[in-house]
């Protein structure tokens, strides 16, 4: 059984090869020591395309597009929307998940942690 952890809804981590993979289609998303978002496709949306204005005026139920944008991150293999982030225009994309691979490998090797049949980490009994 591959040494793979299901780390996010649409993201697997192959511990041996140190690669991110799409959980839906298996597409190789990139180096697991780097930001997984670098291996995804990015699309910027006006928030009103998801949150439509319901009334006229300045405050409409829709976020103001000059203040905030929606960034959508797609798997290049299957198009799954792996992640979204609401950011002001030009704001750096967040490196939200930076797993310490060396620690993880050490704990797996020592038996402190194990990967169960569902790809989930658990503390060894």
């Amino acid at each position: 059984m591959p040494n793979t952890i299901h780390v996010a809804e649409y993201l697997d981590l192959d511990v041996d090869s140190e690669r991110w993979h799409c959980h839906s289609c298996g597409h190789d998303v990139g180096d697991a020591r780097d930001n997984y978002k670098k291996g995804l496709l990015i699309y910027e949306r006006d928030p009103s395309e998801v949150h439509p204005p319901l009334i006229d005026g300045e405050f409409t139920f829709a976020p103001n597009p000059e203040w905030i944008r929606i960034l959508e991150f797609y798997c290049p293999g299957c198009g799954r929307q792996v992640e979204t982030e609401y950011l002001p225009p030009g704001h750096p994309i967040t490196h939200d998940t930076e797993i310490d691979l060396d620690s993880l490998k050490r704990k797996l090797a020592s038996g402190q942690l194990r990967i169960n049949e569902h790809g989930k980490l658990e503390v060894a009994k």
Binding site: E9, P63, I68, V82, T84
Partner: peptide, 22 residues
């Protein structure tokens, strides 16, 4: 939260719409 919403969504969802004072 009338111009932007604070919570970020998770794993590909969207957050909620803004709340005007009506």
């Amino acid at each position: 939260n009338s111009i932007v919403q604070t919570p970020q969504p998770l794993f590909g969802g969207y957050t909620m719409c803004t709340c005007p004072g009506l």
